[in-house]
Design a protein around this nucleic acid. Sequence first.
DNA 1: AATTAGCACTCTTCAGAGGAGAGTGCTAAC
DNA 2: GTTAGCACTCTCCTCTGAAGAGTGCTAATT
Lengths: 358, 358
Amino acid sequence: MPEHIPNTSDGVSSIELTERQQGVLRLIIHEYVSSGRPVGSKHLTEQYPIGVSSATIRNEMSELEQKGYVEHLHTSGGRVPTDAGYRYFVRNLMSDVEVPPGDQIMIRHQFKQMESQLEDWPELAASILAGIAGNVSVVTAPRAPITRLRHMELISLQSRLALLILVTLESTVRQLMLHLPDEATQEELSALADDLNMRLRGRSADELRFAIERPSALAATVIDQIESTLRMADAARQTPVRASGLENMLGQPGVENPDIQAVLDLAYGGGILHALLPRMETGSNLSVFIGDDQLPGELKRLGVIVSTYGVEGHVSGLLGVVGPTRMSYWRTISTVRYMSRLISDLVADLYPGPMEHE
Amino acid sequence: MPEHIPNTSDGVSSIELTERQQGVLRLIIHEYVSSGRPVGSKHLTEQYPIGVSSATIRNEMSELEQKGYVEHLHTSGGRVPTDAGYRYFVRNLMSDVEVPPGDQIMIRHQFKQMESQLEDWPELAASILAGIAGNVSVVTAPRAPITRLRHMELISLQSRLALLILVTLESTVRQLMLHLPDEATQEELSALADDLNMRLRGRSADELRFAIERPSALAATVIDQIESTLRMADAARQTPVRASGLENMLGQPGVENPDIQAVLDLAYGGGILHALLPRMETGSNLSVFIGDDQLPGELKRLGVIVSTYGVEGHVSGLLGVVGPTRMSYWRTISTVRYMSRLISDLVADLYPGPMEHE
DNA sequence: AATTAGCACTCTTCAGAGGAGAGTGCTAAC
DNA sequence: GTTAGCACTCTCCTCTGAAGAGTGCTAATT
């Protein structure tokens, strides 16, 4: 499982840290992530059983600072990891953590319930992820490269008004109102639906027209509507993004209101996709962005962990977590990775198996 | 259109204000709502063409203060309307405002688009309302007193796994996964669906069992699942609440983080329903709560404007706006009222007409 | 050569002090 | 009933000084 951390020009090669410096960096990050206060050399030697004095730690810290992994906010007041420091940590210092068994059980349990509320499983998934990761989470609905129709249904509302329900190959259900050109009974609508289902199954927007030679006015209206809906789905603008967990970010120290604004705009507003997609390495599954200057808005001051999910070549989506750079990377990364696997399984179930393929 | 403002024991009867005092109160509220700063007597006389001096205004203000409609935050620093002051204003001083034509057009335009994205119209409606009102909005999905099935569909996913799609009488679409007791092809599933649709149409959870004498294992599984889903919908716990517009609240002065936390919990979390429903007068359409002590949490420090929508006796839901007590009531109330009418129309369209009634 | 002890120095944080500004409440005059 | 004038109060801002924490450097030690 290759992971990708963009090499934003730190100008820092990664290996030149001694064993002890790595240890100190690890401790600084651990301490800072849990306490939120800048960590000083003295504090470290008092808190942890390191065999050396605070002066030695001070020397190592100043080395780390010179190399760009920690920084001084004020000339006194302890050190804080830099973005480069976090990146180094994630890349080299983080042993592969498993999701704690308790969390695993909790996640699986909630996943079970999703099956009976499939109409907005991305939202539920987002809420589970946010809860476990303790930050804001983002889940996009799955998208196929080309949206194809699997099934449709027409339900009469009034004499010239009907409900049109579409199910795509990847089991997304769409629902819309249809104004009919003439009056039609439920029986007529059902008959039309049956007929269209036979002819249109598995077709994409472009292929709809050729399926029926001389459609009735009613059929033409329906086909038009289906076509435009499929096209809209293809146009990607419509990929809905579900976000959750803003409450987790609200209380955190170090998170400014502009950050929250940015998260609202980008995560809840949906634009986060466009910001991240081009920057994710294609070969890799999971990407980590930490204080990435190339991200838009205040997002550059935050940390983002994204993973893809889906069925190779057929359906795919994104899920991720957004939080302050000071977050528990080991925990978040393992959770995102774990949930991406579960969601991939779900999506695979929802996508028709090979025997049904056309 | 009766409106209801709960008489939280102000102990203040409402008529005992002179013409001029009413005018001053109106000005204070207007000024405070738009500027956000406490308003002083001098400022008022300089800003508005009142024919009297600041000393006179001072006297009136102290009258208003004695009656509980405005208050002194600090002994110097101008006056601020109290919750009772806002209530008096909404009840007696607010001429019936219409929604500005520009807003009307914008709202109608966005409503049109909702028809082609019906699967989550409550969310869209919430986002429209939040945008216009400039605050957090809440929209609940419509609920019928008893959920009845209108239509169902079975779509084969794998040999023993199917997608079950339910459409209720009020045109809510629910979607879930179904584990089958035996293998079944799409043809078998479709046949079963056709049969069940004839027999189950219009039935509620309680009436499902009696529709079919000796069901097959497959049919029994399907009916069980439908029953439990309808029951869940009836149990009201599941009434989804869509909220939107938190970004509007974030920047506002006077809104503390605990308030935002409360809004997140109650509005975005969904509990706001249970908090408000029991306090709404049954006969009235629209209720206004301003700094209502009986509301839970920090919500008591905020203003809430809620309206019902729906088709009398058949389907109903709630929509509303939550914001700081310092909000533009005239604008918000008219917008909520306007949108509640539009949504009622939409829901009426989605609910089957009388000729289809059983 | 690496480590440690000691010490001067810097910078934050907090409380308290003083002045400017705004608005009131009161009294006396109109 | 209305107005002018004035003392008073309170916030807000800035400035100051002392305490606390942590560093950087140097010299001594292992």
